[in-house]
Amino acid sequence: MSETLTHAAKEISWDKKDLLDIKSLSADEIELVLNTAESFKQISERDIKKVPTLRGKTVITLFYEASTRTRVSFEIAGKRLSADTVNISTSTSSVQKGETLIDMAKNLEAMAPDAIIMRHNVPGAPYILASRLAASIINAGDGAHEHPTQALLDAFTIREKKGRFEKLRVSLIGDIAHSRVARSNIFCLTKLGANVTVSGPATMLPRYVERLGVRVVSTIQEAVEGSDVIMMLRIQKERMGKVLFPSTRDYSRFFGLTPDVMRGALPDAIVMHPGPMNRGVEISSEVADGPYSVILDQVTNGVAVRMAILYLLLGRGGGYEDAH
């Protein structure tokens, strides 16, 4: 059967085997993910939250670092597409017996998974897997490098709330240097045309960060003022080699998002946080649970975006509008 459209077919191609980073994606590819996620969001809103699309596909989540939200989000995304999902957390796996990453991967491959979703504390670890395995590799966070699906779900949430990216003012506040979420978001949002500002203690701002095309301001008040989107980052105690600020009380006094700081915000600004939140440190409970917050929308949208990624990688999805 065929169809004829009154508008020309969209020629966006998706030919990637893996999703490793945002840096190598084009703006068109990012928008294809967001548009696809839009169609997937409604599946989670119906009574039967499942489609048969990836029946017979096996998806493994391999997490070398703690995670609740991301792992569960991927697992639910896989299940809602009818893929079989298997979870491996290294605290209960043979990594404890000294198995190397490559051996682990080869053994997993011998069981023919279609996708491996991986979180690792070493930047670049998913790239090693991607180059050696036939399965699609999805980076669910590699050290302080990238966390592409987080940036995509943030972009989806921003588009849903603000309807555009062009000239949108987005401020990332907090620990920019140790944050893979910040890196992926900076790449993603600048590609989409937003104006990105970063702010944080000087010890948490990477040198030459302005080369990524962002504006740097030194106080949270300057970052909040005039921003359409305020994105708070988590203080990453686990990634800090040394003490970068005197105390959490000091941090929250200078870089915590409080109702007082929010008085300088635009009335229609939105507040985002990738989770998990350190309440009372980078964000106060009043703001996290307040009217500006879209933090739980981010979590809801995460499932739709990860469904879109699995579909594009495993379902040969994307591409032109089909003639069936």
Partner: peptide
Amino acid sequence: TITNQHHFV
């Protein structure tokens, strides 16, 4: 999952 055709959702 069996054709090479791309399908936009």
